[in-house]
Design a protein around this nucleic acid. Sequence first.
DNA 1: CAACTGACTGCCG
DNA 2: CCGGCAGCCAGTT
Length: 101
Amino acid sequence: MNTYEEIYAIVRRIPLGRVTNYGTVAALAGYPRHARMAGYALHALSDQEASEVPWWRVVNAGGFISNAYQPQLQRELLETEGVVFDSEGRIDRKRFWWDGA
DNA sequence: CAACTGACTGCCG
DNA sequence: CCGGCAGCCAGTT
């Protein structure tokens, strides 16, 4: 199994309505401190794969959407699942964060 | 083959 | 609170 698939496998485990950050995804996939790679893997998703992997449930450590792909779409998808953003566009970690449980 | 770049992060001043 | 900086690693130039 290659590195990307390891990453995707973890992202697929994120429960609906929950989010996590790149570092956590990488760590759960077996690559601690490789947050950047997790981000790179998601960036490399093809449209086909994007429909199978909930990439929008992954945000940065601060709880913000920082990707440059389609931040508007990502926020929309999350809100559809019930995730709430505050006035600064940040997600409440206490309510929506997922740590691999 | 060296240098750059990027959906990241934590530490430091 | 905020910008700078060094690790990380794969894909591009």
